[in-house]
Write a protein that binds this DNA or RNA. Structure first.
Length: 577
RNA sequence: CGGGACGUGGCGCAGCCUGGUAGCGCGCUUGACUGGGGGUCAAGAGGUCGCAGGUUCAAAUCCUGUCGUCCCGACCA
């Protein structure tokens, strides 16, 4: 492509609305333009990069045996009513009515396609002989994000690859899951992304039912912990900590138990402000109902309770925060004043709780808190549990290392769904004994547009973007320094044409501009390889070849440049194949 | 949905407090010079100051409303 024939509106200055690097750079490089909050146009350069990511995804999905198809973005709202996700999605689901003849048709724009694909399979799968099967599509999704953010990283319309596996047994599901997991690793590697697979929530199947693929990045919206020692990684919700039950003993410095008046002040934040103490000096007492039984859960004031862990510690099936009535019954006080001292229900505590000497807790009396609360004297504990979200600095659960907390961008998610959708949409199969079972499903998503944003976010320097050759909109830029000089243009044209013949994606910067201007633009755009043809080199009979990240160029004889660069490109491609 | 900020040529901004009919840099057009890291000179084009209403002889400027965009938080199969 000749630059002068393309549409590459680069920007020297940073648009005010862009804060994060990926947004600023993709805007400045002329790859995207915003239409409105959460909706972007991909300009020719951005679209080329997007297509390259899509093709990598497509190749690896195909290689894993998944079958590509295309489902409608337009979907009947009824499907979401049948699975209960109309409520689950709530405002995120884009719903609207259209008129056909004399009646209204209720529609939604697909935020994902579990419903549509399950409905499809329900109509066509009858026998275990038809299973397993995995289908996928690459398509635009619609979600009414409450708050679109960070340019292309979080939008209301985005391109996603979504795959769905259908199995007749858990073994088959696990096989499909493993195969997708492996394909994801290949995809992200081929895209040149630094990624971390983390354990995510365990769904209805239990065990390792879900992994998220995260790209560590300062501006990532999710937090994960990982251990540099053993590689353990998980999202905050799911992460275990390596903490153990500490010695449970009353502190030798135990102060006397004192009740203080805290009228209308119930939250940790308010109480700590009023009593001028740090939240870590407080103990929150959360009243839950575990399978209908009230139970008090003690967590240090500055920590977050983790309901999944609490449920597992109690071996409960159903766990929910208790209603105000139960709280009054158990604590003799309205919500906000619960404490372990004298509470009328079972108490369990997080590992960090007994370590807080002279804690501040609710007094189990309206408008009052207790100070100087100490384990062993004022309340009893025999053991403690891991009941809170993990955070940086916690010991690793798998080795003797320490967990680091890092922000990440979620670029992919694999999930063992089980039979949630096949049951609500009656997608059944007959096994070899003529028994009817719901099909066991898995779903696997990759945010294609988000992969691009994550690359921009993590691969750039002061001069601009730095695309891996597998994703770069063009692999090579041919830069004649003086386009009015035939001595320069003739070999430049020849090299450009030879590279195209060799199947290299080449951009010819044929603009009549000064060299510095062109160099800056190319570095901004992030084309991996640059060939410069200028007066100086012509005299020596050479062109200069330089990688985007190299400091120095290599001189290559003019008549060898095309072949030399084609070889460089092939070798570089091989690293991402 | 709570909190904050901002809307002035394509982009970045000043002007607003203290009302008097819009300016700077970049970009763009034309010409000349220039030609290895975002050039120089000259001449130009381009804005109902987000929108609506109000106050006033007069509104980019003051008041009210509204729309939009961004940031922090809540939310995110």
């Amino acid at each position: 492509m000749r630059w002068t024939k393309s549409f590459i509106p680069t920007l020297k200055e940073v648009p005010t609305d862009a804060e994060v690097p990926s947004h600023q750079l993709m805007l400045r490089a002329g790859m995207i333009r915003q239409l409105m909050a959460g909706a972007y146009t991909y300009l020719p350069l951005g679209f080329r990069a997007l297509r390259k990511v899509e093709n990598i995804v497509r190749e690896e999905m195909d290689r894993a045996g998944a079958l590509e198809m295309l489902m409608p973005a337009l979907q009947p709202l009824e499907l979401f009513e049948r699975t209960g996700r109309k409520e689950t999605f709530g405002n995120v689901l884009i719903k609207f009515d259209i008129t056909r003849r004399d009646h209204k048709v209720h529609l939604a724009l697909g935020p994902t396609h579990e419903e549509v694909v399950t409905d499809l399979m329900a109509k066509h799968i009858n026998s275990y002989r038809q299973l397993p099967v995995t289908v996928y599509q690459i398509q635009t999704k619609f979600r009414n994000e409450e708050r679109p953010r960070f340019g292309v990283l979080r939008t209301s319309e985005f391109i996603m690859k979504d795959a769905y596996s259908f199995s007749s047994s858990l073994e088959q599901l696990n096989e499909a899951y493993e195969s997708m997991y492996a394909a994801y690793c290949r995809i992200f590697e081929r895209c040149g992304l630094e990624y971390v697979p983390v354990e995510a929530e365990s769904g209805p199947i239990g065990g390792d039912a879900s992994h998220e693929f995260m790209v560590p990045a300062g501006n990532g919206e999710d937090s994960i912990v990982r251990c540099a020692g053993c590689g353990y990684a998980a999202n905050l919700e799911r992460a275990e900590t390596g903490r153990k039950t500490p010695p449970i003993a009353t502190s030798p410095d135990a102060a006397s138990l004192t009740q203080v008046s805290t009228p209308n002040v119930g939250s940790i934040e308010q109480v700590s402000k009023m009593l001028k103490c740090d939240p870590s000096q407080m103990l929150k007492t959360l009243i839950y109902l575990a399978d209908g039984e009230p139970i008090a859960v003690l967590i240090r004031g500055d920590h977050e309770a983790n309901e999944g862990k609490i449920r597992r510690a109690l071996d409960a099936d159903v766990l929910a925060l208790a209603d105000p009535g139960t709280i009054v019954k158990v604590t003799n006080a309205p919500v906000g004043f619960a404490g372990p001292v004298g509470i009328k229900c079972r108490v369990i505590a997080d590992h960090d709780v007994p370590l807080v000497a002279n804690a501040i807790t609710g007094a189990n009396a309206a408008d009052a808190h207790l100070t100087g609360v100490n384990v062993g004297r004022d309340y009893e504990l025999t053991e403690t549990f891991d009941l809170r979200d993990a955070s940086g600095g916690d010991p690793c659960p798998r080795c003797s290392g320490t967990l680091d907390e890092v922000h990440g961008i979620e670029v992919g998610h694999v999930f063992k769904l089980g039979t949630k959708y096949s049951q609500s949409l009656t997608a059944n199969f007959l096994d070899e004994h003529e028994q009817r079972h719901p099909i066991i499903m898995g779903c696997y998503g990759i945010g294609v547009t988000r992969v691009l944003a994550a690359l921009a976010e993590t691969r750039h320097d002061a001069n601009g973007l730095d695309w891996p050759i597998s994703v770069a909109p063009y692999e090579v830029a041919v830069v004649p320094l003086n386009v009015t000089d035939a001595e320069v243009m003739t070999p430049a044209e020849q090299i450009y044409s030879d590279l195209q013949q060799a199947g290299v994606d080449t951009l010819l910067d044929d603009r009549d501009a000064r060299p510095g201007f062109k160099f800056k633009d190319l570095e901004l755009i992030g084309i991996p390889l640059r060939i410069v043809i200028g007066g100086k080199g012509i005299k020596e009979g050479i062109a200069e070849v330089k990688w985007r990240t190299d400091a120095e160029a290599t001189k290559v004889p003019l008549n060898e440049v095309a072949a030399h660069v084609a070889k460089l490109v092939q070798d570089a491609r091989a690293k991402f194949a």
